[in-house]
């Protein structure tokens, strides 16, 4: 028994540091982001993307944008239309590599940094800045663009300088962090799937009738609270040195902004839901 423990310790010591790190809430979110990038890359390989329609779809996002924004979009659309295979294959492969890079711990920083640059590029050249400058951006129609959210997520999920976030905090917060790490230590896949399912429910929920939308938003608040407590250690406010409470309270506020305020009748007598 003693020998087995000693061998285990020796074995652990030989494992690279990045491999010894557990799966905390931040890592689970990174893996969810990696899965979405992988899905994006695979979707980009579909046959439709190898047709001229894809280039036309990109070109359509230039409409009503200022000239300085629209010209590069049209140039990109023309490039894709005239060279169908190579650009799209490159696009798909880059997204595939971003997903693989984020999922593979030694390359997570490089991949997250690259994903920020790539998402900004896609936001401009592929989504026309999400319609922000053309006045057509709406949360219902996907505004301010999907790609910018990838970049935002990459910033939010940037690996912490330390493996955990428990330094200098009160004991009960440290205990919460350790407990969450222990629970998730070998449940990375299950946790990722549960979190992804919850986020999908939340995303879809705002488009549902008010009672269901409220339920989805309550779920969003619960998820934000969970992330804030177990993933962000309450923004490390109590550890000193924090300049803000981290992202979870903002995500909760964002969720509340979608709260269906009231149902009123418009001029045609139809019911109309107003958001807060």
């Amino acid at each position: 028994m003693v020998r087995a423990r000693a061998e285990s310790r020796i074995n652990q010591a030989r494992v690279p540091r990045w491999e010894r790190l557990g799966t905390d809430a931040r890592r689970v979110l990174q893996l969810a982001l990696a899965a979405i990038w992988l899905l994006d890359g695979l979707l980009q390989y579909q046959w439709f993307m190898y047709t001229e329609a894809f280039g036309q779809m990109i070109g359509g996002t230039a409409a009503e944008n200022p000239g300085v924004i629209a010209r590069p979009i049209r140039w990109n659309a023309a490039l894709v239309e005239h060279h169908l295979v190579l650009p799209n294959t490159v696009f798909a492969s880059i997204q595939l590599l971003l997903g693989l890079g984020i999922a593979y711990r030694p390359t997570v920083r490089v991949a997250l940094a690259a994903s920020i640059a790539w998402s900004l590029g896609v936001w401009w050249f592929g989504e026309g800045l999400g319609g922000v400058l053309s006045g057509s951006a709406s949360p219902v129609s996907g505004g301010p663009g999907v790609a910018i959210l990838y970049g935002l997520l990459a910033v939010l999920l940037w690996p912490a300088a330390r493996p955990g976030m428990t330094g200098g905090e009160p004991g009960w917060i440290s205990w919460l962090e350790r407990y969450a790490a222990t629970v998730l230590a070998h449940q990375g896949l299950a946790a990722s799937i549960v979190l992804a399912a919850a986020l999908i429910v939340i995303a879809v929920g705002v488009f549902l009738p008010p009672p269901l939308a409220r339920s989805a938003l309550i779920l969003a608040l619960v998820v934000a609270a969970f992330i804030w407590a177990f993933g962000e250690a309450f923004g490390q406010i109590l550890a000193g040195g924090a300049t803000d409470p981290n992202s979870a309270p903002l995500l909760a506020l964002l969720a509340l902004a979608y709260w269906p305020r009231a149902t009123t009748g418009d001029n045609d007598g139809r019911a109309q839901v107003k958001f807060a």
Binding site: T23, L38, L39
Partner: peptide, 11 residues
């Protein structure tokens, strides 16, 4: 995709 990400992440 989930299994792929999981496989990449773990030892």
């Amino acid at each position: 995709v989930a299994f792929t990400v999981h496989d990449l992440d773990r030892r």
